[in-house]
Amino acid sequence: GVTLFVALYDYEARTEDDLSFHKGEKFQILNSSEGDWWEARSLTTGETGYIPSNYVAPVDS
């Protein structure tokens, strides 16, 4: 299955590639091989962008 991640904090995008999000928003991670910045798709907005990996945690299934 796909592991979903949930935002622990609000984040405001600093570049066009970043994804702004709110605490509690859920994400599907598309690429986590880039280190501290993961490519993710928000399940709330459907938008794709980079998120700071230390702002999210796995959702307990």
Rank of each mutant, 00 (worst) to 15 (best):
R41S: 10
L8Y: 03
L19M: 11
E25N: 04
R41H: 14
P52H: 11
G35F: 05
A13N: 04
T15K: 11
W37S: 14
L8H: 09
S53K: 14
F5E: 02
Y11L: 03
S53P: 13
L19A: 01
G24E: 11
S61T: 15
V6E: 12
A57F: 04
Y9F: 14
G35I: 12
I29M: 09
N31F: 02
V56K: 01
R41Q: 14
D17W: 08
A40P: 01
W37K: 15
V56C: 05
Y55K: 08
R14F: 09
L4Y: 14
N54V: 08
D60C: 05
L19V: 09
F21Q: 00
A40V: 09
K23W: 02
V6C: 03
E47Y: 06
V59D: 06
I51G: 00
E39K: 10
L30W: 03
D10I: 01
D60H: 08
T48H: 12
A57D: 13
A57T: 12
L8M: 15
L30A: 07
S33Q: 13
Y50V: 15
S20K: 06
A7W: 00
Y9Q: 11
L8W: 03
Y50L: 13
R41G: 02
R41F: 13
A40E: 01
E34R: 10
G46E: 11
T48I: 09
V56P: 00
T45I: 02
E47N: 15
N54T: 11
E47I: 08
G24L: 03
E16T: 11
V2W: 06
I51R: 00
V56W: 01
T48S: 11
L30Q: 06
E25V: 05
D60P: 10
R14K: 13
G1N: 08
N54P: 03
K26Y: 05
S53H: 12
D18L: 12
D18Q: 12
T15Y: 08
T15L: 14
D10S: 05
E39Q: 14
G35Y: 04
E12S: 13
L19E: 01
G35E: 10
Y11P: 01
S20V: 03
T3M: 15
V2L: 11
G24Q: 03
V56M: 08
H22S: 13
A7Y: 00
S32H: 08
E25Q: 11
D17L: 06
S53M: 10
D18V: 13
S32G: 08
L30D: 05
F21A: 03
K23P: 02
Y11I: 02
R14E: 14
W37R: 15
